[in-house]
Design a protein around this nucleic acid. Structure first.
Length: 815
RNA sequence: GCCGGGAUGGUGAAAUGGUAGACACGAUAGGUUUAGGACCUAUUGCUCGAAAGAGUGUGGAGGUUCGAGUCCUCUUCCCGGCACCA
């Protein structure tokens, strides 16, 4: 027997799997299709990170398990190569992104082969190739036709380092998602996708999705639906009205002022002469501040009075109208009604400017006194007071009643507002798909005709962003100058490219039609394979890729291209890998490069170790020591499979094997790969102790191990079965059927009964299974135990609980 | 502040309301081989005890139950999402 030497067997099988197309299902003829997808990676220059590999392995293990269960599994792979990340890197090393991408592509696909994932090598998708981005552009044109892509001048996020605009989702607490620079604001005309049209569907579908809770919650928060009412306030002596959005109209009898944000369009119309200068001054300083600066100033309230009073029509109360920057222009109506007794920010404002405070709710603390301190501000459950016809109602009843009343009077209108904004997809960058539109002086915006796609991204030597608000493509006159498709006059091309996240919001459709040049969707294949059965990826894409993909899928459904609206039936977020208790980062020097580990230990050891660390959805702490244990385990498997004393399976062997199958079946499905490994270890330990094994047991064990360690099991399968690739179409272990559970072997002849006295463990009783139902017999046997007797001889037994085959508990009068 | 997810040995962790710590790592002792990240056996939650054994133990406080890591209430801390969001 040769020693277990991974480097010798792994490359051989990787090549054989690829060359024979073992993992390429027939997309048209497959009988039990199962689309197993993982988030395709961004191909970074350093190559695959251990975090990527952890995710890919976990997804691959699941796919392989499904394949053993008899599914025709489609497990595609590709590269999400377009985007700012790659372009920034190319700039850093002073190379062209087109050159860099060739290198990273090669490296990534080599790594993918090396780790042994069961990819369909015949259907890869790389977003930066024109046979893919043709479809990104096509999708843009479809959205444009539907009015879902539009151009608008707006205040947008601007990253001063990446020199481009960014979508709201790509600004993480004020910082650029890519480079962590402080994001500023710029007024620019840009392309947007109307994702807000889908806000309600995106939100209400969440409930029915079989997705990780963490992602569902993040999406709910991001969409941020709020049900409230827009209340109209007439202004004294003016023919204008101010509309305030509120979710708490129940407290409206407690309103004492109104605050409008500095962005409010009516400011200069309503501000009275003697206050105008102060208002102007305040507004200009406020608008000069970034969001971060506004927040950085803390919660200290500032503001100026406009000189105008609004009227609360509920009680005729006069409400002074103020301007303050704590009211945000883009939230609600940009104006709020101040109820200082029941909103902490309103309270702070009222205190600052000495405005009256009225209590209209009494909460659990039963405090009915006037509200003078911040601790007294009552924002929670309670009963209405000082509110005329609402008095005595709880706040929820009062909310409904006042909304009905305001609507009836015509003073207000129920509205639903969302935190979600439209998706800004223009980027003033080079490394992305050109947005396929043309500007003609006569015809205006003209979409590129579909038959002219793709609009190829030209090679531009100086691809660096300009910072002028115009993309680098503008410098290429051959690209820019074109003719109008409508009037054939002179025209200019759009020079911005689209957001990288747009590429990735449709890649899972393209995997199915890589062999078709003329369409993105094929009805038969869509019906067979979509939506994706299982999607695995990182939770960091919760409100980016995972939200965008849902929106794009809904839009495609509405256009009739597909007949479902949720792209991913099941989604599971994998955990994160940390190293020795800390997050991996280059600066800490604790980044794990899988290549080295795979070279030293083999892909099987590395894969199995990663999956054994803990539950896949939980991530884990990477410790070099752990690899040795897994290496030991595989070595023992290696020698056992080739060097065991063959014998008929014993009863105990059959029982343990069947228990292992049962456990592995359940745990693979739950993504609890760590306990699959431990179950197999227990089986191995048993066989080692027993010193004999049946060939059937060994084979079943190898099949169960094969998703985790595909190479060693394939090699051993070949040795055991002497399969011949030329003559046997089921030569591979990866095509074997999942071992069947034989129920009759799950039960042991002996069972252990735990004996407790007053709930405390006192002894064990090993009995024949047939006796398990005979309670009186068990009882007397249990009482005979000396250790039990010691506990019960001086007390009376009040009650006996017996769970057949498991436990007997004597309850005494000592209790 | 709101919404999610957590907290179990020295470490990674396991436990349909029924023997907490399976399976590993590490450690200790012994054996064996020293050509190999070696292999084999035993021990390993904590406290007391030479041992038998006893007590105790799943962030904390209560509760339900014959029986709680698991269910309920309150609470502390950690991680993630949203946030001057009206």
């Amino acid at each position: 027997m040769i020693k277990y030497f991974p480097a010798k067997i792994e490359p051989k099988w990787a090549k054989k799997w690829k060359d024979t197309g073992l993992f390429s299902p027939d997309l048209d003829k497959a009988k039990k299709p199962f689309y197993s997808l993982m988030m395709f990676p961004y191909p970074s220059a350093e190559g695959m990170h251990v975090g990527n590999m952890y995710a890919f392995t976990g997804s691959d293990v699941y796919s392989r398990f499904k394949r053993l269960q008899g599914f025709d599994v489609f497990e595609p792979i590709g590269l999400d190569g377009f985007g700012i990340h790659g372009e920034n890197y190319a700039m850093k090393i002073n190379e062209h992104p087109m050159e860099v991408s060739k290198r990273t592509e090669k490296h990534f696909y080599e790594q993918f082969l090396m780790v042994g994932n069961a990819f369909d090598w015949q259907r890869t998708v790389d977003t930066y190739k024109s046979n893919y981005y043709k479809w990104t552009q096509w999708a843009f044109l479809q959205l444009y036709k539907q009015g879902l892509a539009y151009r608008k001048k707006a205040e947008v996020n601007w990253c001063p380092s990446c020199l481009t605009v960014l979508a709201d989702e790509q600004v993480i607490s004020g910082e650029c998602e890519r480079c962590s620079s402080q994001v500023g604001k710029k007024e620019l005309e840009q392309w947007f996708f109307k994702i807000t049209d889908y806000a309600d569907r995106l939100l209400s579908n969440i409930e029915s999705l079989d997705w990780s809770e963490i992602v569902k919650t993040a999406q709910r928060n991001w969409i941020g639906r709020k049900d409230g009412i827009n209340i109209e306030y007439e202004l004294e002596g003016l023919d204008e009205k101010i509309v305030c959005f509120t979710t708490r109209p129940d407290t409206n009898f407690g309103a004492t002022f109104i605050v409008i944000g500095p962005e409010h369009p009516l400011i200069y119309k309503i501000a009275q002469k003697q206050y105008l200068d102060a208002v102007k001054k305040y507004v200009s300083t406020a608008l000069a501040k970034s969001d971060m600066e506004r927040i950085a100033e803390g919660r200290k309230k500032t503001g100026v009075f406009t000189g105008v009073f609004a009227v609360n029509r509920l009680n005729g109360q006069k409400l002074p109208v103020w301007v303050s920057d704590f009211v945000l222009g883009k939230v609600g109506t940009g104006a709020v009604v101040g109820v200082p007794g029941h909103d902490i920010r309103d309270f702070e404002f009222a205190k600052e400017f000495d405005l009256p405070i009225v209590r209209v709710v009494v909460g659990k603390d039963d405090d009915k006194t006037p509200i003078t301190k911040a601790e007294q501000v009552q924002e929670e459950e309670g009963l209405m007071v000082n509110s005329e016809f609402l008095n005595g109602l709880d706040i929820h009843e009062a909310t409904v009643k006042i909304m009905d009343y305001l609507e009836e009077k015509g003073w207000g209108k129920r509205v639903t507002s969302y935190h979600l904004r439209d998706w800004l997809i223009s980027r003033q960058r080079y490394w992305g798909p050109p947005i396929p539109t043309i500007y003609c002086d006569k015809c205006g915006i003209v979409p590129v005709p579909e038959e002219d796609l793709p609009v190829e991204l030209p090679y531009i030597k100086d691809f660096k962003p300009t910072g002028t608000g115009v993309g680098p493509l503008a410098s290429d006159s051959d690209f820019v100058n074109t003719t109008c498709p409508k009037c054939h006059g002179k025209a200019r091309r759009e020079t911005d490219v689209s957001d990288n996240f747009f590429d990735s919001s449709l890649y899972f459709f393209r995997y199915l039609t890589t062999d078709m040049d003329d369409k993105l969707f094929d009805d038969t294949r869509s019906k067979k394979w979509l939506p994706v059965d299982m999607y695995i990826g990182g939770a960091e894409h919760s409100v980016l890729h995972l939200l965008y993909s849902r929106f794009i899928t809904m839009a495609f459904k509405d256009m009739g291209f597909i007949d479902f609206e949720e792209p991913f039936t099941k989604f599971r977020a994998h955990g994160l890998i940390i190293k020795d208790g800390a997050k991996m980062s280059k600066s800490k020097g604790n980044v794990i490069i899988p290549d080295k580990y795979i070279k030293d230990w083999g892909a099987d050891v590395f894969r199995t170790y990663l999956m054994f660390m803990g539950p896949f959805t939980g991530g884990g702490d990477f410790q070099d020591d752990g690899l040795n244990g897994v290496y030991r385990f595989l070595t023992r498997i290696w020698s056992l499979a080739q060097n065991y004393e063959e014998a008929e399976a014993t009863q105990e062997e059959k029982r343990i094997l069947n228990k292992t199958i049962q456990k592995a079946s359940k745990d693979f499905e739950k993504l609890h790969y760590n306990t699959v490994v431990s179950g197999l270890m227990e089986l191995l330990n048993f066989l080692s102790r027993q010193k004999t094994a049946s060939k059937e047991t060994i084979k079943s064990m190898l099949i169960m191990l094969s998703p985790l360690a595909p190479f060693i099991t394939e090699e051993l399968w070949e040795i055991l079965e002497r399969t011949n690739i030329r003559t046997n179409e089921h030569w591979s272990i990866h095509n074997q059927p999942w071992p069947q559970i034989e129920e009759e072997h799950l039960k042991d002849e002996k069972v252990t009964i735990v004996i407790q006295v007053d709930g405390k463990l006192r002894d064990n009783l090993i009995i024949d299974r047939e006796l398990a139902d005979n309670q009186s017999e068990i009882e007397s046997m249990a009482k005979n135990s000396p250790r039990v007797q010691k506990c019960i001889d001086s007390v009376a037994i009040v009650k006996v609980f017996y769970v057949p085959g498991k436990i007997i508990n004597f309850v005494t009068d000592r209790k």
